[in-house]
Each structure stands twice: as C-alpha cells, then as structure tokens.
Amino acid sequence: MPESMAIQHNSEVVLHFDLKLADGSAADSTRVNDKPAKLTIGDGNLTQSFEDCLLGLKTGDKKSFTLQPDDAFGQPNPDNFHHLERSKFSAEAPAEVGMILGFSQPDGSEMPGIVREVSGDSVTVDFNHPLAGQVITFDVEILSVN
C-alpha cells in the first residue's frame, strides 16, 4: 500500500471538520449534512492558523486543535459596530437582540450583522465575524490529500 501524502502547501484536501466554542457548543460542522469540505492549502479560504494545523496530516488522521481568538476569527473590532435608526428595519425583519440579518452593501453584496442592542430608536448592529473573540476547537478528519 503506497504511503499517503502529508498535507503541504498547494495540497488539495478533503476533510470533515467541527468547530466548537469553549463551552462545547457547535459553531459549524461538515458532518451535519455529510458534506466534507474541499480546499487547497494556500488558496486563502482558510486563515494561516487553520492551515498550519493541517500541515503534515495524512489521509485518515483525526486531530483536535484549540485556537485562541487571534489565531481563529480575530478579536471584535469596535469600528464594526454601527448604530442604525430603528425605522430602517421592517416588520418582516424587526430589530430584535440576537437576530442575524443581511444588510445590502454599496456594491450590491450582502453582509450579515448581529443585532446587539435595541434602545429607543437606536439599533446597534455588530458586523464582526460571529465567532470573533471566541476560543475555537477545530476537530478535523482528513479524508484525502492530493
């Protein structure tokens, strides 16, 4: 049986992953719909820290890594908190704390924002990544390496 390749720069990797928060709750998983992720190391789809965790792993390897916020999704940026008028929200998408809503950008794309506070006519929306500031456990199972 040929020796399996180790993951290196430019490797094409198919893997299952689970992202968990420090309290053990699931943040994301490819196992939910049994749809493994496919990526190329170095293509920019994963942060350098996530890619570094994968380097050297081979087909069949299972490993768990814990990443601090600066190595995962970063710290929340206070400049990404915006105060909007409550009138900008509709009856179909009311401003309720905890809701994740899509906001249109000038280029036509949508950006998700989390409603953090509603006070009178002011709504505070957080446009940071939802996992910013979180310690993340990254569990991986390598299915193939090419």
Rank of each mutant, 00 (worst) to 15 (best):
M1W: 05
M1D: 14
P2H: 14
P2K: 13
P2C: 09
E3Q: 11
S4C: 02
A6V: 05
A6L: 05
I7N: 01
Q8W: 00
Q8A: 04
Q8R: 06
H9C: 03
H9T: 11
H9A: 09
N10H: 13
L15W: 00
H16C: 03
F17S: 01
D18S: 11
L21F: 01
A22P: 00
A22Y: 03
A22K: 12
D23V: 03
D23E: 04
D28P: 00
S29F: 09
T30E: 01
T30Q: 00
T30C: 01
R31G: 02
R31V: 05
V32R: 12
V32F: 08
N33R: 14
N33V: 06
P36Y: 00
A37R: 02
A37C: 10
K38E: 09
I41T: 00
I41K: 08
G42L: 09
G42H: 06
G42E: 10
L46D: 07
T47K: 14
T47S: 15
D52W: 09
C53H: 04
C53F: 02
L54M: 03
L57F: 02
L57V: 08
L57E: 06
K58M: 08
T59D: 03
G60S: 05
G60V: 08
D61E: 03
K62V: 08
K62E: 13
K63E: 14
S64E: 12
S64F: 09
F65E: 11
T66H: 03
Q68Y: 00
Q68A: 13
D70Y: 06
D71P: 05
A72E: 04
F73E: 07
G74Y: 07
P76W: 02
P78G: 10
D79G: 00
D79A: 14
N80A: 14
H82E: 11
L84G: 00
E85Q: 15
R86N: 12
R86G: 03
S87Q: 15
K88I: 01
K88E: 15
S90W: 01
A91C: 01
A91T: 13
E92G: 10
P94A: 14
V97Y: 07
G98Q: 13
G98F: 09
G98R: 10
G98N: 12
M99C: 08
M99R: 15
I100M: 15
L101N: 11
G102C: 04
G102V: 07
G102W: 14
F103T: 06
S104M: 15
Q105Y: 09
Q105T: 14
D107L: 11
G108K: 07
E110A: 12
M111K: 13
P112V: 12
G113H: 13
G113F: 15
I114N: 10
I114P: 05
V115P: 11
V115N: 13
V115Q: 07
V115H: 10
V118D: 09
V118S: 08
V118E: 12
S119R: 07
V123T: 06
T124D: 01
V125Q: 08
D126S: 06
F127S: 08
N128H: 04
L131P: 01
L131T: 00
D139P: 02
D139S: 12
D139V: 06
V140A: 10
I142H: 01
I142Y: 00
S144A: 14
V145H: 07
V145F: 09
V145N: 04
